[in-house]
């Protein structure tokens, strides 16, 4: 299924947002997620079934002013 992750088009096999987020588990950091501009909490990821064309944002802490 074709989706957009952080602005890049990708063909993915994961069905839910939680499965997709497992890609980032090796990072000792925390991430926050949004799908199609809506914030998805960590607890909602398992039930969020991804759809073709979804725009997914996966963010993590960075420097800021």
């Amino acid at each position: 299924m074709q989706v957009e992750i952080n602005g890049k088009s990708e063909d993915i096999t994961e069905a839910t947002l939680e499965e997709l987020c497992k890609r980032y588990l090796d990072l000792p950091t925390v991430i926050a997620t949004a799908v199609n501009g809506t914030f998805i909490t960590v607890h909602e990821r398992a039930e969020l079934i991804l759809q073709p064309g979804d725009k997914i944002e996966i963010l993590s802490p960075r420097q800021g002013g």
Binding site: N6, G7, R23, Y24, L27, P28, T29, V30, I31, A32, E57, I58, L59, S60, P61, R62, Q63, G64, G65
Partner: peptide
Amino acid sequence: VTLSLRRETSGDGAASTFWEHI
């Protein structure tokens, strides 16, 4: 101290390094 959220680029380690530091 102010900081932000930015798109995670899996594998570059920048976010985790910064987060641990902050």
